[in-house]
Design a protein around this nucleic acid. Structure first.
Lengths: 110, 110
DNA sequence: ATTATACTTAAGTGTATACTTAAGTGTTAT
DNA sequence: ATAACACTTAAGTATACACTTAAGTATAAT
């Protein structure tokens, strides 16, 4: 199995949770501290930390600790990879439909 | 919580597993029976059935049983929704970067 | 020096996932 | 009629997930 595939596992897994998507939603607006990420979530701080760990393991988010605060930000590469995986499959599916329609047109006067 | 959000949970969750992505990969080429989906996977048939159930629950795949064979095919709507969720976030993130760059340009002669 | 802040670690709990094997159902071929 | 086929159901196991509370560490403010 390839590294890219393992990354997709982690990325899609990370995006499957609504709390983590909310964290991503926040981070696309700009960097945030752990507390800022936690504020809107009805969850303990360690719970948020664990979600953050999942996001970091997937490569969707990176963070850096300065003093006593950790600042998190989006790393768009993996987001793009996940998007592209889907886009490619959708393109293949649509291409097949096109061929099918073309075939039906060509043979409709039988 | 909204229905769309629940669907995203299920869709991303479904896409997080490599066996299920392989099934989707096969189905974008065109419909397939359960056995055809199972053939390339190193797994028992009930295992494949369970993956199929996950894909159907997410709305990514639909199937129909005719005689003793069940034929599965892609349902692209949810695939598109998942793609769009990512695309929107990436767009927001890029828009923010643009504003940031613009700000830096405007203030670079200080 | 003391206290508050911002995480961080550890450990526990309950639920969900990803399989397995064994046995069963309805359909088609001989 | 019987045997093969294509699933399907049931039940069990082992691991992973999504939380929790309690206690700990390092930094910053007073």
């Amino acid at each position: 199995m390839f590294r890219a595939e393992a990354h997709l596992n982690l990325a899609f897994q990370a995006l499957a949770d609504p709390s983590r998507r909310a964290m991503v939603d926040r981070l696309v607006q700009g960097p945030a501290t752990v507390s800022e990420l936690a504020a809107p979530l009805a969850m303990s701080l360690p719970g948020v930390m664990q979600h953050l760990a999942v996001l970091e393991a997937s490569g969707l988010v990176v963070s850096e600790k300065i003093g006593r605060t950790r600042t998190c930000r989006i790393e768009p590469k993996v987001l793009t990879q996940a998007e592209q995986w889907i886009a490619e499959r959708r393109a293949l599916w649509e291409r097949r439909l096109d061929r099918l329609g073309q075939f039906l047109d060509e043979t409709k006067d039988d």
